[in-house]
Amino acid sequence: MLQLPSIYAEYIHRWLPELLYYCLATLAITGVSFILAVAIGLFFALCRTSRYRLLQTIAIVYIEIARGLPIVVILYIVYFAPPQIWPGDWKWFTTFLGAVIGLGIHGGAILAEVFRSGIEALHKGQREAALTLGMTPAKAMMYIILPQAMRIVLPPVGNYTIGLLKDTALCSLIGANELMNDAKSIAFADYQPMAVFVLVAAIYFAMSYPLSLGVRYMEARMSVGR
């Protein structure tokens, strides 16, 4: 451990550029899964809060399963199961795609509950006021409920994003080309696992910490009032 500074001095100019390049892949996975998770989450949150029993049940089942499974298991099922069940040409199904879908499915379940509590947190009076002005429930949801709910859910969504960033490391376990995977190659190629993994930890930290501070700032601003 005391040798770390000298190890870094020797290798870092080789490691860092490559690792930072794979950071972009990590950020790309994070970004695309985030969008997918928000879309899925919003859809199931609306199902969960709708007045149709069937939609509610479908949402509950989806959320319970996707939240109850470890992310690794979801990734493995998403990436390995379809090509095995339906034989054919699967070359287009990259690890990136598998990673994004897997993370999106898991994230969708988490965000569905976040959005739901945001929607339910609003005072019943808001919906009533909208309805008494002649809005249909759909319009009330679109112009009055959701805009306010989005503001409330910003901190939990921020926290989810930070978790998502860290979870991209799990995609290395299905072979996705991102930071963790590259770290493993370098670590064993140069026989310096401790140095490399500590460096990679620092890189993840450098990416997540600013987000953390951002979320905390948002939470502070929201509790004081707009």
Binding site: G125, L131, T132, L133, M135, P137, A138, K139
Partner: peptide, 15 residues
């Protein structure tokens, strides 16, 4: 509620 929306346009409610 969706069907009521039209009728409610003519009734004002102050909470």
């Amino acid at each position: 509620d969706r069907e009521l929306a039209k009728e409610r346009q003519e009734i004002g409610f102050v909470f």
